[in-house]
């Protein structure tokens, strides 16, 4: 974690799919640098042999039986779509 002050903001923004302005990039780099600096505190904590916590109250085998009980009409499913045609969501041509 030693080089965390230099977070590769371009790469991370690309992964996160957010177009950041130059200003934002500069600002976030600096702020995240100080946040990560603070977070590095965790390094000093000895966690050898400690199990990670994924859920505060872990359970197992939470499922439902295979019975249809949930639905949404096409109209309701697409009522908020920014662009639709033939009951489908329109997106720019996706190159495969």
């Amino acid at each position: 974690m030693s080089d965390t002050e230099k977070i590769d903001i371009e790469y991370v923004a690309k992964l996160a799919r957010i177009a950041l302005s130059e200003e934002e990039k500069a600002k976030f780099s600096e702020q995240l640098g100080s946040i990560l600096g603070y977070i590095e505190k965790l390094e000093e904590l000895n966690t050898e042999g400690v199990e990670p916590t994924a859920h505060p109250h872990p359970m197992e085998n939470v499922w439902q039986e295979d019975v249809v009980s949930s639905e949404l009409s096409v109209e309701a499913a697409l009522q908020n779509a920014p662009k639709q045609r033939q009951n489908m969501v329109v997106v720019p041509k996706v190159v495969e």
Partner: peptide, 13 residues
């Protein structure tokens, strides 16, 4: 490992 896994372990503590 350095961040998320470490934090999950700290969470246990």
């Amino acid at each position: 490992d350095a961040y998320y896994l470490k934090a999950q372990k700290a969470r246990t503590l």
